[in-house]
Design a protein around this nucleic acid. Structure first.
Length: 563
RNA sequence: GCCUUCGUAGCUCAAUGGAUAGAGUACUGGUCUUCGGAACCAGUGAUGGGGGUUCGAUUCCCUCCGGAGGCACCA
């Protein structure tokens, strides 16, 4: 049997379409929503208002006709029409209970559509080697991983790509300083310290580049040497780069992130340079010794792809990267997520790349997410004012241990849940004001709250190792209806989150579900109940448990059984 | 200067053009001899200003004000 994401919505839509046809309207996807106010039903439609003028009938008359012609069925228990032209639907108790059984049967695949969708390359993370990852990178890792999981759930095949800057002026600035004290770095006993050492060197080099003319010339020369991988510069580059590459593998593992491939700027610069040079005169033009793309004809700005020294800039490297990506994977869509300060930059890259590779037209997409800010303003590793992502995780873990006295392993999971959830709960487009205290928040709308709720479900279920069978329910379950009416929405929520690349929709739903469960928990004892009442409550607890786990997993959050 | 983007309770965030704008936090007051209190309930409190489109606008359009970002060899 073909599995839909949401059975209930699919069926309801089908009935509504039939009813609309009898009224004289063909609508392939009639608008259905979950009313904000629960007393307005499980679903509501405003199509009567939409079609009133076309049908030359009053919205209320159309609403009545829809109700009149709505097929009699098991799914819908009541239909209500409301001024000025809403039709509200209540899903029947048996249909909701059937869905409850479906959740229990399908377990961690409940709501996952059995369809094959697109091949998507998703690039996220993108920290530079020779620098410490900061909180913006942490956001990118977390957001990208969640997006990958959500898109995968919806039947897409995802190729996960990381792209790291391991060459270019920033590396030269770092190595300028490293060269003078490489032994100090070699003596450090762990990778994190070595990368911190590189970060310090980068900051020193950066300062010198701006304030010391001789240093600037030396760094520019060093940059050339690194590109041609010459002499001592090449050797130091190899050595320091390997520290960093190894460190990042460790960091990714710690965050629970996996990649299909890591790309490096040192690999994209040659193909990028070649492609740009080949298209001089058609896509690119020479100007003041550099090779540029003129954006103005397209309403964009002009950018340099190869500088006057003949070195490819970030722009050319990105074109090179795109050429590598399409060789590696037969993609239908290439998604790149970065901070939104690069929004305009990416419009230019996409336009230029589409001209170079016409077969990719419409397949390149950039997703800009908000800047992570402190109360003092934007964070930049260039100015040295950073929140080190790696240490942040440790700091939060220490705080969790101090507050709750758990073991380090589960404390680390809880702290990652706290950080991930605090990043994913709001719309990605907007800037995020980072507040350490709020991220550690132990109560309220937080990761730990969701984990705690999950732990509660597990605790109850562990005392009921076998699930009874659920047939019909004759008793009053009004106290259980709140949670029952939330559960079946999970598939729809994930679908919407995937469509709009918005994990926060899922985060919001899971929080709602957890809150509803805690209310249920408060007023409906499970283990003290008997008979049908106990059976229904165990089923509900089981369903909440499964959905919380599935949903949190789609956010990249691992659950714990105890905390 | 030009372009992009965001302005929702004191603070941090929700709300595919829908009905009475929801939460958390903070503050005030409650529940429970816990199926794990990192819980639950109640109260106070908000769409930056002005126009427009619409049966209906936090959402779309215009304008003003305010924040953030970008605009040639950095990434």
């Amino acid at each position: 049997m073909l599995s839909y994401g949401s059975m209930i919505k699919t069926q309801l839509t089908r009935h509504l379409k039939k009813s609309l046809e009898k009224v004289g309207v063909r609508d392939e996807n009639p608008y259905l929503e979950h009313p904000a106010n629960e007393t307005h039903g499980d679903y509501s439609t405003s199509v009567p208002l939409k079609y009133a003028s076309r049908l030359h009938k009053s919205p209320m008359k159309i609403a009545e006709d829809i109700k009149e012609n709505f097929p009699k069925n098991f799914l819908v228990e009541a239909i209500e029409i409301v001024k000025p032209g809403f039709v509200n639907f209540w899903i029947s108790k048996p249909a909701l209970l059937e869905e409850l059984v479906r959740i229990a049967e399908n377990k961690d695949t409940y709501g996952k559509p059995q369809v094959s969708n697109k091949k998507i390359m998703l690039e996220f993370g993108q920290p530079n080697t020779h620098k410490t990852p900061h909180i913006g990178h942490l956001f990118s890792y977390i957001f990208g991983e969640s997006l990958a999981r959500i898109l995968e759930w919806e039947g897409n095949q995802i190729f996960r790509a990381n792209y790291q800057g391991d060459i270019g002026l920033h590396v030269a600035k770092c190595l300028y300083s490293v060269k003078k004290k490489i032994e100090e770095g070699r003596r450090l006993d762990d990778l994190k310290k070595k990368v911190d050492f590189l970060q310090t060197c980068y900051q020193e080099g950066s300062y010198q580049y701006e304030h010391n003319e001789t240093a600037q010339k030396e760094i520019d020369a060093l940059n050339m040497d690194i590109y041609s991988h010459k002499g001592i510069a090449g050797e130091i580059w190899d050595e320091t780069r390997s520290w960093s590459v190894e460190f990042y593998r460790l960091f990714e593992k710690k965050l629970g992130i996996r990649y299909d491939r890591h790309y490096y700027e040192s690999q994209t610069s040659a193909p990028g340079k070649g492609i740009v040079e080949k298209h001089v005169g058609t896509v690119f033009v020479k100007s003041e010794g550099a090779i540029i793309f003129k954006g103005e004809p397209y309403g964009l700005h002009t950018r340099v792809f190869i500088n006057k020294y003949g070195n490819p800039t970030y722009e050319a490297k990105d074109v090179g990267l795109i050429s590598m990506k399409k060789k590696d994977y037969p993609l239908d869509l290439s998604l790149v997520t970065t901070a939104n300060e690069q929004n305009e930059y990416w419009k230019v890259i996409i336009k230029a790349s589409e001209l170079v590779f016409p077969e990719l037209k419409g397949k390149l997409k950039h997703l800009g997410f908000g800047m992570i800010q402190l109360t003092t303003g934007k964070m930049a590793s260039r100015t040295g004012k950073i929140i080190d992502a790696f240490s942040l995780v440790d700091t939060v873990t220490d705080e969790i241990i101090r507050l709750y006295k758990g073991d380090r392993e589960s404390a680390e999971k809880i702290s990652l849940a706290a950080i991930k959830y605090s990043f994913l709960r709001s719309e990605p487009l907007k800037n995020i004001v980072f507040d350490l205290k709020m991220s550690i928040a132990k109560d309220g709308d937080s990761g730990p709250y969701l984990l705690y709720t999950y732990v509660r479900t597990k605790s109850i279920l562990s005392k009921n190792p076998t699930l009874p069978s659920l047939q019909t329910v004759s008793i009053d379950i009004s106290g259980e209806m709140g949670i029952l009416r939330k559960l079946y929405r999970f598939p729809e929520v994930v679908e919407n989150a995937a469509k709009s690349y918005s994990p926060h929709l899922l985060a919001g739903y899971l929080y709602d579900l957890a809150r509803e469960f805690n209310l249920f928990y408060q007023k409906c004892p499970v283990l003290k109940a008997t008979g049908e009442k106990r059976t229904v409550r165990i089923f509900l607890t089981n369903a909440v448990s499964l959905i919380l786990k599935s949903g949190l997993n789609l956010l990249g959050i691992e659950t714990v059984d105890k905390m």
